[in-house]
């Protein structure tokens, strides 16, 4: 135990990785949870890839000298917001399926733009675009950690203040509007902050880790836990444990921490499904037991009820 602490204290990149793990778990519990509630788990992948298109645009504008100050990360954020707005517009009526389609369309559009622009960017620069998706939690620099911390902090504050509104919008959009809440504003606020957080987290720790950590733990917790607060906490715990296990195992043998974390997070969903199915089986068997015991009891009235209720007599 002491040894581990000593290693951590003397290894800055490990410290950064651990802080990064906590921050990504925070992003997952405050953004991933609400996206899964909203039926929008696909938005994580959509936004991350759309950001790729944005990064390509930024690089193109820089390289071609059209707008030299246009950093690729700006482009990435811009495209992330674009996906959020299209998705939000499709979902103003509160129907989740429509939003999922909008994510798909805007994501495909952004990817096409990325690939289109790649023809006009010097080939040596192209890997930088793809690099946007393959950040690594063990390769974080101080700037990444600060950016990620600011992102997570902003997201956590917004979610802490408006979590009721986000839940209400997800549960009953029309009812929320009709009772006088500005539901549309919260609807967009939720989608845009999530999109920005996803884009920034992707830049820092890479797409694989973000997909795995934002979606699976939330889906798993939502299957088995029975309160909103429980799910938020459950996501944090599952996400953090998967990441820590990922980091730890990358020291034990040659493995990508993101991949291990992703596999573990996905496993948590499988386990949750099993638990849920098991619970349902218990419930069903209990119900059938109850029914049997009722039928087994020899009520004298049974006969009377049977003849009075026989079909054809009720007219």
């Amino acid at each position: 135990m002491l040894e581990i602490i000593e290693i951590i204290l003397t290894t800055p990149f490990l410290q950064r990785a651990l802080i990064g793990a906590v921050l990504v778990a925070l992003v997952a519990s405050s953004s991933g949870t609400f996206l899964v509630f909203r039926g929008l788990s696909f938005m994580t992948a959509g936004v991350a890839h759309a950001a790729l298109g944005g990064a390509a645009l930024g690089l193109f504008l820089q390289e071609s000298g059209l707008i030299p100050w246009f950093d690729p990360i700006l482009g990435a954020l811009l495209f992330a917001v674009f996906v959020a707005l299209v998705t939000g517009y499709a979902g103003e009526s509160g129907i989740a399926q429509k939003m999922e389609v909008a994510v798909g369309v805007s994501f495909a559009l952004s990817m096409s733009i990325a690939v289109f622009l790649m023809y006009y960017i010097p080939p040596t620069q192209v890997p930088q675009i793809w690099g946007y998706l393959i950040g690594d939690i063990l390769l974080l620099d101080n700037f990444d950690v600060v950016m990620l911390a600011l992102t997570a902090l902003t997201l956590v504050i917004i979610t802490a203040v408006f979590n009721k509104e986000f839940v209400y919008v997800s549960v009953d959009m029309e009812g929320s509007l009709a009772h006088g809440m500005n539901a549309r504003a919260y609807h967009y606020l939720m989608l845009i902050t999530s999109a920005l957080a996803i884009a920034l987290a992707t830049k820092a720790v890479g797409a694989i880790l973000v997909y795995a950590i934002l979606v699976a733990p939330a889906a798993a917790s939502n299957e088995v836990l029975s309160s909103v607060r429980g799910v938020v906490l459950g996501v944090f715990v599952v996400a953090l444990l998967s990441e820590l296990a990922g980091i730890a195992s990358s020291f034990a043998f040659r493995a990508s921490p993101s991949a291990i974390a992703g596999i573990l997070a996905a496993m948590s969903y499988v386990v949750a499904m099993q638990i849920k199915r098991h619970r349902e089986r218990i419930r069903v068997s209990r119900q059938t037991e109850m029914k049997h015991s009722r039928i087994d009891r020899p009520f004298p009235e049974d006969k009377v009820v049977a003849t009075a209720g026989s079909p054809g007599d009720d007219e």
Partner: peptide, 8 residues
């Protein structure tokens, strides 16, 4: 119209 995906 009430979404049942949220454990309220």
């Amino acid at each position: 119209r009430i979404d049942l995906n949220i454990p309220m």
